[in-house]
Simulated scan of single mutants.
Amino acid sequence: MKTLYVSHQGCYLSLRQESVLIKRGETILDQVQLPLLEQILIFGQSQVTTQVIRACLQRNIAIAYLSRMGKCYGRVLSITQGYRQLSRYQQLLSPELQLQTARIIVQAKLKNSRVILMRQQRRRASEQTALAIESLAYLVQQAGEAVSIARLMGLEGAGAASYFSAFGECLSGAGFVFLARSRRPPGNPVNAMLSFGYQVLWNHLLTLIELQGLDPYWGCLHQGHDRHAALASDLIEEFRSSIVDSLVLYLVNRGLVSADDDFEYHDGGCYLNQSGRRKFLQAFVQRMEESVEEQPRWNLLSQQVRAYKQFVYDPSCLYSPYLIR
């Protein structure tokens, strides 16, 4: 199954038999067979016909509408996507189990972040990176002993600060400077790619969660509400560094993106422009199709969502996170 990304502006999606056509004017840019689609992500100003929407609803294909910078405005979902049964099981998880699962998720994020820095340290040693690696090891231990969600969130934040303090040391591409993480808005090209990548990955996880019948608004670590799918925010944590951060390092250090040509500045922030989004999404898809542990990375996401679903059904089998080997 694949995701259709529509990042060009002014496109028009129409239906021809069992295929979705992506057109600009009278020119057909691409076409994808409906049976191969899992979701459609539309960035910015493009139109979708009623026929395409109806066909997607009949096949449980989600359509997400995002800004050009990756912020999700909303999604079109089939009425069959209900969470009533599993949601009840999720809500029955005891506070102790929720805390234990939150510990597991935070520890996995910290461990994976540490592995990424250890790999970079072997390639390009620095004192800052060495300190961050040591700090993350300590925070992993502390997270395993946390007695509240608030304490865990504090440790997760400390881990992110330590990790990103060394992230800039791992970058060697011309024109790319990174001192700290900034999100709303992203302050430079590296932050722009991180924010965009996290949003794309988050949307993928949200779709997989919905396909499995889990309630995306009921998590263990993050607090859910009408505008925040907490479970997607929980499960993305173990994948941030292994998928998005490592991809940003690859794009920058290989010179595949240009700090001058692939970004735009407006509204007080820095964002990928059309060429930058195209390059990032192409590299993202290629990376997700690569084999890890004898399966595409796409399967790792599905594997973790299914593992969480199994945990909800049988809490005696604790959730097992994805860890980089």
Rank of each mutant, 00 (worst) to 15 (best):
M1R: 14
K2N: 12
K2T: 10
S7D: 13
Q9S: 12
S14M: 08
L15H: 08
Q17N: 15
I22A: 05
K23Q: 12
K23S: 09
G25I: 02
E26Y: 08
L29K: 06
Q31A: 09
Q31T: 08
Q33L: 11
I40P: 00
Q45K: 15
Q47S: 15
T50W: 08
T50G: 11
I53W: 11
A55H: 00
N60I: 09
N60E: 15
I61N: 06
R68E: 08
Y73A: 12
L77A: 04
S78G: 08
Y83H: 13
Q85S: 08
P95V: 11
T101I: 01
Q107M: 13
M118T: 09
M118L: 14
A130H: 02
A130K: 08
I133F: 02
E134H: 11
L136D: 03
Y138G: 10
L139E: 00
Q141G: 10
I149V: 14
A150G: 09
L155F: 02
E156N: 06
S165L: 13
S172M: 05
G173N: 05
G175L: 09
F178Q: 05
A180S: 15
R184Q: 13
P189S: 07
A192W: 01
L205K: 00
L206C: 07
T207D: 13
I209V: 12
E210T: 14
Q212L: 07
D215A: 10
D215S: 08
G219A: 10
G219F: 06
C220G: 00
L221H: 06
H222A: 09
H222R: 05
G224S: 13
H225G: 12
A232Y: 02
D234S: 08
E238T: 04
R240M: 07
L249Y: 06
G255F: 02
L256C: 12
V257Q: 02
D262V: 03
D262Y: 04
H266C: 10
D267K: 07
G268H: 01
F280Q: 04
Q282D: 11
E289C: 12
E294K: 15
L300Y: 00
L300C: 10
L300T: 03
L301V: 01
R306Q: 14
Q310E: 05
V312G: 00
Y313L: 15
